[in-house]
Nucleic acid binder design. Structure first.
Length: 577
RNA sequence: GGGCCUGUAGCUCAACGGUUAGAGCAGAGCGCUCAUAACGCUUUGGUUGGGGGUUCAAAUCCCUCCAGGCCUACCA
């Protein structure tokens, strides 16, 4: 690929919360599609920086640590390692998997807060919040339970009654108690917090959102709602009374009156996207310039294209709060260019549920099948336009048909036929006929269409095109029928099989963003390391020369049996482990 | 309550306001035998959730009703 075509692409995935193992719905909503495009853009020769991290602060992390009987720092370090391991298992190709608790993020978060304060965009607010003496902490609204004054439901939460859906204020609840300990020893205390004056940046944010004509409706409509609903964009509290987090400071300096407080997790989490690049630089022994050229438009990032991936619940923070932080700083940090947001994946007629253990979690998925099976199904069924649904029947038929029958069997029939008739090397001689020409023309069209869908970040359409590319190989073999041709004209059959063997390498290259392990296996079987992305298809199909030795691979994709499917459906219906 | 999204073939999904609403899977028929009983070809399925309206023309735009989902700012 010509050097002038090289682009620099920064990709971040929404950072998963530290608390527990994520389910497949979480995976398909951000990390997995982000990885698909990171791999694709790298394969196209672009310079890619793909970052992700764990989101470690906030009340749930402290409670989970307490439940595990461990200090928060220790708990988070352990869970980071668990999540890192699962990311590796799913072959998520992060350039760095960081932690929002890193020293780099502490420094940057404090830096941004200092800049925002200097710009007059932070105000102090004294407010009254519920404090639980038994728990020794302030309670967020939803951690307070009581009887709903509206409908009498006894387990209403402080923010909303889930029985009658009425919005509540914690002080409305009758007989309020801590949802953590059940204690009724609650009191209202005065506490001071910092608010980010998002309202002052409303017009600027609005104009910025308006300039994003190519963003999905899902993304812009959510942002517009927040900008224009009621009194418009509200200021947002960016500090909390917690122990674990980034201490409130103005840059390097203390913040009088804010001692003992930390920044709100949603203030520091997106900043970790930037800090993560700094962690990457440190981990690779690089200087600051190496990461700042990705993030500072005055230090080399002016040509960077920045794409964020996230589930729809994360949209307000990425379209409003984080841009407000960046714009408000008055410094030339890179703003996001494109937001790819996803709907939810449901599980067999309901929702995936972390609390009920309903659905398949990342560790369980890898324990029963290779990552590629999940990657293929999840990506080819990604909830791009609406919520979508996982069922075991659909999973079984899709994987068996697409991976085992269409792709896996193609590889198998080509390599085994060659071995039996010509031996385990690319056969020489002969000419292919017009059927081969038709195949090449079709592939030329389809490969370019596949690239188009990937550039447009249309995940399902790209998957469908890739599948059609695989199927084209079977169609060709069927019409060319080298097993018949061999009897009359062995040279011609040799040329046909030479083409088909080269097709396997092309398939491996094209498929790698979706199914990297299988692609690597196919490349190994073809005994090549030439990952050149196909330009003109006719040329790409000549890379493995006559005489080139190969091996017949083991079964590339084993099929899922009915008994397995039934057992798994039962096992994952509810209650983890 | 408010806002947004979704509803298309048995299933999962496509379709700039513009021929006869298309694919894959499943179903039916035929073919092939190299291959993981795999592959290929042909083919049956739709009053586009209901009703009304705008338009030469509506799955698409408007109104309304029904069903499902998401968000609603202190969970993250």
């Amino acid at each position: 690929m010509a050097g002038t075509d090289m682009a620099r692409i920064l990709i971040t995935s929404a950072i998963p919360y530290i608390n527990g193992i994520k389910h497949l719905g979480n995976l398909v909503g951000s990390q997995l599609p982000a990885d698909l495009f990171a791999r694709y853009f790298r394969a196209r020769g672009h310079e890619v920086m793909f970052l992700c991290a764990t989101d470690e602060h906030g009340t749930p992390a402290e409670l989970a640590a307490a439940k595990a009987g461990k200090p928060v720092a220790e708990y988070c370090a352990e869970m980071w390692a668990v999540q890192k391991d699962l990311s590796d298992g799913f072959r998520l190709s992060f350039d760095h998997f960081g932690r929002s608790s890193s020293p780099q993020n502490h420094a940057l978060t404090q830096h941004f807060a200092g800049r925002l304060a200097e710009a007059g965009l932070i105000r102090e607010v004294s407010e009254r919040q519920v404090y639980s003496n038994a728990d020794g902490r302030f309670l967020p609204d939803r951690y307070i339970e009581g009887t709903c004054p509206n409908c009498g439901y006894e387990r209403a939460r402080g923010d909303q009654c889930e029985n009658c859906t009425k919005q509540l204020d914690p002080t409305d609840l009758i007989n309020p108690r801590s949802a953590i300990s059940g204690s009724t020893d609650l009191e209202v205390r005065e506490t001071k917090h910092l608010y980010l004056r998002q309202s002052a940046m409303k017009d600027k944010l609005d104009a910025w959102i308006d300039s994003k004509k190519d963003w999905p409706v899902l993304t812009t409509s959510i942002a517009k709602k927040w900008l224009h609903d009621g009194d418009g964009l509200q200021d947002r509290g960016i500090t909390r009374d917690l122990d674990w987090g980034v201490p409130v400071k103005k840059g390097d300096e203390d913040w009088p009156g804010m001692e003992g407080k930390v920044f709100y997790v949603w203030f520091d989490a997106p900043i970790e996207y930037i800090a993560c690049a700094a962690e990457w630089a440190e981990a690779h022994g690089k200087d600051d310039a190496a990461w700042r050229r990705w993030w500072r438009t005055d230090e080399g990032a002016e040509d960077v294209r920045y794409i964020q991936f996230m589930g729809k619940d994360n949209v307000p923070f990425h379209t409003l709060s984080f841009p407000a932080t960046i714009m408000g700083s008055g410094e030339p940090w890179k703003l996001v260019d494109y937001i790819k947001s996803f709907n939810y994946l449901n599980y067999d007629g309901g929702q995936f549920s972390t609390s009920q253990g309903r659905g398949v979690f990342m560790d369980q998925a890898l324990s029963i099948l290779p990552a590629d099976y999940w990657r293929w199904w999840l990506l080819s069924h990604a909830p791009e336009n609406s919520d979508s649904e996982f069922t075991w029947e659909n999973f079984q038929t899709s994987v068996n048909k697409d991976l085992a029958d269409v792709l896996g069997n193609f590889v198998s029939r080509v390599t085994k036929f060659c071995r039996s008739k010509f031996g385990e090397a690319v056969p020489e001689g002969g000419e292919t006929g017009e059927r081969a020409e038709a195949l090449i023309n079709e592939l030329e069209t389809r490969v370019r269409a596949y690239e188009g869908h990937m550039e447009a970040m249309e995940v399902r359409k790209a998957a469908a095109e890739l599948r059609a590319i695989w199927a084209a190989g079977n169609e060709y073999l069927q019409s060319a029928a080298p097993w018949t041709v061999f009897k009359e004209d062995p040279d011609k059959a040799a040329a046909q099989i030479r083409l088909a063997l080269n097709l396997i390498r092309v398939y491996a290259v094209l498929s790698a963003p979706f199914i990297p392990d299988a692609s690597a296996k196919l490349m190994a079987a073809m005994n090549t390391d030439d990952w050149t992305w196909p330009g003109p298809v006719a040329e790409a199909l000549q890379i493995l020369p006559s005489g080139h030795a190969f091996t017949v691979p083991e079964v590339t994709f084993k099929k899922i049996a009915d008994e397995e499917r039934e057992e798994w459906a039962k096992r994952f219906a509810g209650t983890r482990d």
